[in-house]
């Protein structure tokens, strides 16, 4: 059995027995290639009442290599307007890059990180280079192919 499969099975079992943290729901985990989870930020924040969906994609190297994570953008879900989130759903977060990722992190811990990223947002704004990245530069389909220069370390 591939390590990624065993690992994801373990994470799934844990989710099913212990549940997910507040504001995080498992939407779909039918296979070990891609999962969908929803997140919302509770309390008095800029994203009150909004629900976002996250798409996780795993390769056979998971969890040694980070999963590809992005916000779902379709008829139903939109990407949160946030200085680190592009309008196509790609996320600029060091935790998802090779330097910030640690194999001990998990799907749920990524969700929690992104949840708190939204919770601490001070303004609803797209990254300054959003148009350049999404439209002109033709962002790659898989966000892992992008070498993000992480915006400030604050938000």
């Amino acid at each position: 059995m591939a390590v990624s499969t065993r690992r994801l099975q373990k994470e799934l079992t844990e989710i099913k027995t212990n549940g997910t943290p507040v504001g995080i729901k498992l939407l779909q985990a039918d296979n070990f290639e891609s999962w969908f989870l929803s997140i919302e930020v509770l309390g008095d924040t800029l994203y009150q009442g909004e629900v976002f969906a996250l798409k996780f994609r795993f390769d056979s190297q998971y969890p040694i290599s980070a999963p590809a994570v992005q916000f779902v953008v379709d008829d139903y879900y939109k990407a949160p307007v946030h200085p680190h989130v592009y309008s196509n759903g790609h996320i600029c977060a060091s935790i998802l890059g090779s330097e910030g990722w640690s194999p001990v992190l998990s799907v749920i811990s990524v969700c929690i990180t992104l949840q708190s990223m939204l919770a601490f947002a001070k303004e609803r704004k797209r990254p300054p280079d959003n148009d350049g990245y999404v439209i002109r530069a033709r962002a790659p389909e898989n966000p892992k192919k992008t070498r993000f220069v992480y915006h400030d370390d604050e938000v």
Partner: peptide
């Protein structure tokens, strides 16, 4: 502080709690 929120706490430990 890292770019994606600093107070991650809980969940991360959760997956690794028993073993780290």
């Amino acid at each position: 502080s890292r770019s994606t929120g600093s107070s991650l706490g809980l969940g991360i430990r959760r997956a690794t709690r028993r073993n780290t």
